[in-house]
Structures are given as C-alpha cells and as structure tokens.
Amino acid sequence: MAAVSSGTAKVTLPTDTQILITREFDAPKHLVYKAWTTPELVRQWWHANRGEMTVCEIDLRVGGGWRYAMVAEGFGEVAFHGGYREIVPNERLVTTEAYEGIPDADANAAVDTLTLVEVDGRTTMTILVEHPTKEGRDGHIASGMEAGMQDALDRLEQVAVSLS
C-alpha cells in the first residue's frame, strides 16, 4: 500500500444547477496542481480504473482547450472537452466542460471551478460544477450512475461466470 487514501469524495448540491465535489489530499497544492494539469500524469488517474484513457490534450493557457477521452469496459468511448477561462497556478482553474455524448454539447457545457487550499502540507480540493440548467445538472449525475450500474453488472457477470 504505497498510497494512503485521504478519504472519500463528498458531493453536495448547493443550488439546482450546481454540483460541489470536495476531497482532501495528503500532498501540497503545487503537486496536486501538477498532477491535474500534466497530460502524462492525468493519464494515470483520470480513468478511475474503469478503462483506458485514449486522449489527453491540455493546452494550459487562458483561451486554450483541453480534451479527454476514455474507453470504458462495456460502455464505449466517452469524451469531454472544454476551454480554460481563468488560470491561477497551484490555486484555481476555471474551465468549461462539454460532454460529447449529448446533443449541443457546447451550448450545454458546464463551467468547472477548481480550487486548491493547502494547510500543513495537505490540500483541500473543491470542484464546483455549474450547469446552465437543472436538467443538465441532473443528467450529469445520472450518467455517473449508469456507468456505475454497468460496472456492477460487469462484476455480477464475473461472479456468475466464476460460480458456473
């Protein structure tokens, strides 16, 4: 066990159109920022062990764009892209986030604000996801559930196969 888990992500909904994700990391903020913004490093964690990351492009400047894609087991390719609006190195990133699996992805893009606050070598990360509509916000959360249910079904299938 090289890594110490610093706790689970906490999700709350401050308003009808927002999602707020909070997580603490046992590392200083400049390393969290580096892991968040360096393509070779993002490739190592963004997949969440649910598949393989196929695209990871980061043009880290205001007006620059990013695009992430992964192939998830039994789920095909999912891709996201957006543009950087505000960059304060090691502290704050504001980007748009469009999910390419929905119609009018760019018109329905969310605005994500990443904030890093360091205390005694530990960093609290908050990600505020703001959707243009409540329906968009709800759909975003529901898509996580669908992927998770697919995971659960896959696991169930593995268990079933191992029992047969």
């Binding site: 689970t8 997580r23 046992d26 969290v32 969440a48 959360i141 996580g144 249910m149």
Partner: peptide
C-alpha cells in the same frame, strides 16, 4: 443515485493519491 456519482469520483481520486505519492 448520489453515492454512485460520489463513488466514481472517489475511485478517480484514489488513483490521484497514487500519483501524488510518486510526485512527493
């Protein structure tokens, strides 16, 4: 509904923990 969304982020952050340990 919410816990699945939370779980997917937790799994992603668990991977990020590993990257951070290596960087440290």
């Amino acid at each position: 509904w919410v816990s699945e969304y939370e779980r997917s982020w937790s799994e992603r952050f668990d991977q990020l923990d590993i990257v951070l340990e290596q960087l440290k």
